[in-house]
Design a binder for these strands. Structure first.
Lengths: 151, 151
DNA sequence: ATATACTTGACTAAAAAACTAGGTTATGTG
DNA sequence: CACATAACCTAGTTTTTTAGTCAAGTATAT
């Protein structure tokens, strides 16, 4: 399956935007510091997130990114799909040509697993995550550390 | 996530054993032909399946592998776990040290996804698969082709 | 003007996955 | 007993993917 650091980073980063964009656009350096992710890598990821209309950007001083849709409209699945190849556990990418030009013995099993995972990730939005206690706690911790670094 | 060809091959191959071991041990060359998987790679996989007591082996002519437990006792999860590292979608392997020595913002999300996938795969046995129509159909097709090749 | 910050695309090092090679050992059969 | 068969074992090698860097831009607020 396609479930890599890239997708994880993207979800973490866009969640960071969702948590902070009430004070205007969030810039990548801040995200990089807060979430401990490489800045240049984030640039790549946000380029894709923007192409997929999940974030919008503002250039220049005070610029950065904000959500292009409501946090309750952006699902975790969309974010992962934006930066990674579609999540897929089959050998044939769903084309049913896993054995010669026919379905292999376990084709349907992997398809089912795909659906299962997608179902879970489709049902989960950034708004859901923001409301979770564990996310709130970690986010507050990170904000405190940022304040200390800047003073 | 750790969901690779290796795990897929292993499930396909052991399912092949489950489907055919009523006529005595199933040898790897046959599996290799029927499922179109590299023989030497299968050897590696079955070595692990045996270590994990999912199959037992018989050497010499007429030898091969058969299930070491009932098909209703062997879950897809067990098979995958046997040949691959544990399925895990977190950055920290569940150790909560994804950011410095603390939990990252999305730690709990990935843990939850882990549970979800494991739950699905734990609830599915080889016996379940054998009873599926799509598996029966593909298996019959494969058997016919094997007969043709041998004649 | 100038500093800030986004944009783009090519490039690379490192790790993991997939697969191969070449043997050794056990065992049923004639 | 010889010999064919098939499991077993240990190292490789090759390929692919991933994660991340670098460099050279462009746009914009102040």
């Amino acid at each position: 399956m396609k479930m890599t650091t890239k997708g994880r980073y993207a979800v973490t980063a866009i969640l960071d935007v969702a948590l902070h964009d009430s004070n205007g656009p969030v810039n990548l350096s801040d995200i990089s510091q807060r979430q401990d992710l490489p800045l240049t890598y984030l640039e790549q990821l946000f380029s894709k997130l923007k192409k997929n209309h999940l974030v919008e950007s503002a250039r220049g001083p005070g610029g950065g990114y904000r959500l292009a849709q409501g946090a309750d409209q952006i699902t975790v699945a969309k974010v992962i799909y934006s930066v990674d190849e579609p999540i897929d556990v089959t050998r044939c990418k769903g084309k049913q040509n896993c054995q010669g030009d026919l379905r292999c013995l376990t084709h349907d099993l992997w398809m089912e697993l795909n659906m299962h995972i997608s179902g879970f990730l489709n049902g989960l939005t950034l708004a859901d995550l923001i409301n979770r206690n564990n996310v709130k706690q970690v986010s507050e911790r990170q904000d405190v550390i940022m304040m200390q670094l800047q003073s």
